[in-house]
Amino acid sequence: MYFQNSAILAPTLESVEKVNDFVLTIFPGMEKEYLSSDTCQADENEDVQQE
């Protein structure tokens, strides 16, 4: 697939949104949103091991 080995550079977030909207129209199916986090929030009762 073409996009697997490519990068799209955009100078502004507005440009990024336009590119994302266009690419989403190419692929069929439902849209999924994946979120990321820089921190880990664990339940107080869980043991969290850090390596």
Rank of each mutant, 00 (worst) to 15 (best):
V16P: 00
N5K: 10
N5W: 02
E46Y: 01
G29P: 01
L13A: 12
Q41K: 06
E46G: 00
T39A: 11
V48F: 03
E51V: 06
V48Y: 03
Q4G: 06
F22H: 09
M1S: 13
E44M: 03
M1F: 07
D47N: 11
C40P: 01
S15I: 07
L13I: 08
M30L: 09
L35K: 15
Y34S: 12
E17N: 08
E33I: 15
M30R: 11
E44D: 04
D38S: 07
E51Y: 05
Y34M: 13
Y34P: 00
F3S: 10
V48W: 00
E31H: 09
Y2R: 13
D38Q: 04
M30N: 10
D47F: 12
V48G: 00
N45I: 01
Q4Y: 13
S36K: 07
D38I: 01
D43K: 02
G29A: 01
V23I: 15
D43E: 03
V23Y: 07
D47V: 14
N5C: 03
M30E: 13
P28Y: 06
L35D: 09
A7D: 13
Q49R: 04
E33K: 15
S36L: 06
S37W: 00
Y2Q: 09
E14M: 12
C40R: 08
L35M: 10
E46D: 02
I8A: 12
D21Y: 08
L9H: 11
N45H: 04
N45V: 01
M1P: 05
L35I: 10
E17Y: 02
Q4C: 08
Y2E: 11
S37V: 00
P28H: 08
T25W: 03
E46C: 00
E46Q: 02
V16D: 01
A42L: 05
N20L: 12
P28M: 06
E31V: 14
L35E: 10
E33R: 13
T25L: 12
L24E: 15
E17I: 03
L9K: 08
E31K: 11
G29V: 00
E51H: 04
E51M: 04
Q4L: 11
Y2L: 10
A42R: 04
T39K: 12
N5Y: 06
Q50G: 04
L35T: 14
N45W: 02
N45T: 06
T25R: 15
E17W: 00
N5D: 10
A10I: 05
I8P: 01
C40N: 11
Q49I: 06
P11I: 08
T12K: 05
T25P: 04
L13T: 07
V23S: 05
M30G: 07
M1Y: 08
V16T: 08
T39C: 08
E31M: 05
I8M: 11
I26V: 13
I26G: 03
